[in-house]
Amino acid sequence: MNTELKLQALLDGALDAREIREIEAILAQDIQSAALMQELKWMKAAVAGNEAEVKLPETREFYWSKIERGIAAEAKQAAAAPAERAWWLRFIYPATGLAAMVAVMFVVSGGRTTDGADTESVPEDVNAISFRSEAEAMSVVYVADENGTFNPVGQETKNEPEADK
């Protein structure tokens, strides 16, 4: 806070004892600060209790009539509010349920997405993997040998359509 604002705070009784001593020491030495303090004092004294007297330029009845209408309009609006809310509430609950269901499905699937194409399963704790291609309509199982190399087991199996057999 600068000295000018401290002078004002002194005038308004907003300083603590230490600050009052500090600012009074400045006032005793600095003529400019003392002159400014005097100006602020004049203004505070002039304004306090000298607010212009203003009267409402309307009759009691006329002024009240608009207030009464305002109260009635607000009450009407407040009564209508639950009905207005109801239409979107009818949609918000099913939408929330649907969103929750999608979220659960996403979490359960681990965030993976499939497009119905090829899938491969590679468990870490077994020495066999399987491969299935929907497009080729076939499944292949690979089993690891003692060196950890995966080889297809027997012949690759191609699932021919029944009509082709």
């Binding site: 806070m1 000018e4 604002l5 004002q8 705070a9 100006e39 602020l40 004049w42 203004m43 505070k44 002039a46 304004v47």
Partner: peptide, 19 residues
């Protein structure tokens, strides 16, 4: 509060000048 003090200070000084 600083803004309030600054505005009040300006208002009083300007009022003195206008009066």
């Amino acid at each position: 509060i600083g803004t309030v003090m600054s505005r009040l200070f300006y208002a009083r000084r300007r009022l003195a000048s206008l009066l």
